[in-house]
């Protein structure tokens, strides 16, 4: 009997430097995608709530397309389709190129979900708030800045937090876009040491260290900023 498969944590300790750099790749992607998807998602939301019909339709098309396509396909399209077939290269260094392609794929995908949460947030603001703001003579920007956005923003924190947590977990899928991160490292370690329980636990805990604090943070923020109605 060889109990090492259940108890031996030494492969993790031996590769601690690789582990750190692999998780650092996930963190890098998460942060970049987080920022880009927020920017893009806000833009899409602005389109979806605008009074211009063409923009509304385009925004809805974007969200419905990306939301219903598997991320695996989006990322594969970025690596095989955009880079290899369409010769769309962001950088000539392969590692940088694949990093940005992975970020691009994840950002356009996540932006669809960000846009949905933001729109849901705007919809939670009761119509009466806007009518009252107009009635006391606030202009469009004033009512947006002082009445609607503060309320919408607060309602959006919790759903946005869920989107970000799911995004962090999704960074493992960039494996298919040929970018090396924690899931790729786990796969390699499985090949080298066999698929042992300690290796899996190690990586699972690694991801929990990323997702749980993010969850705590957004929960805390959402509770703190909640609007009482």
């Amino acid at each position: 009997m060889n109990w090492n498969v259940l108890l031996d944590f030494s492969p993790l300790a031996d590769n601690s430097d690789k582990l750190l750099s692999a998780f650092w790749a996930n963190i890098r992607i998460s942060v970049t995608v987080g920022i880009l998807s927020l920017v893009l998602g806000t833009l899409i939301t602005a389109m979806r709530v605008s009074p211009v019909r063409v923009l509304r339709v385009a925004g809805a098309f974007y969200v419905n397309t990306l939301r219903n396509t598997p991320l695996t396909l989006v990322l594969l399209f970025c690596s095989l389709g955009l880079s290899d077939t369409l010769k769309f290269r962001i950088s000539h260094t392969p590692s940088i190129n694949f990093f940005w392609l992975a970020v691009l794929g994840m950002s356009v995908y996540t932006a669809a979900f960000v846009a949905e949460s933001l729109r849901a947030g705007i919809n939670t603001v009761p119509m009466g708030q806007a009518e009252a703001a107009r009635a006391i003579g606030l202009t469009f920007t004033q009512s947006l800045r002082m009445v609607i956005m503060p309320q919408a923003f607060r309602a959006v924190i919790a759903p946005l937090g869920s989107v970000m947590i799911a995004m962090i977990k999704n960074t493992t899928v960039v494996l298919v876009a040929s970018y090396y991160e924690a899931a790729s490292l786990m796969k390699d370690m499985f090949e080298q040491y066999g698929a042992t329980l300690p290796i899996f636990i190690g990586f699972a805990v690694g991801f929990m260290c990323l997702t749980l604090p993010t969850g705590f943070f957004f929960n805390w923020l959402a509770k703190r900023m909640a609007v009482v109605r």
């Binding site: 977990k169 698929a195 990586f203």
Partner: peptide, 16 residues
């Protein structure tokens, strides 16, 4: 709390 992908890898090759 964990990504589905690493779960798939482990379920695929872990038990054997």
């Amino acid at each position: 709390a964990i990504p589905l992908l690493i779960l798939i890898f482990f379920v695929f090759s872990g038990p054997p």
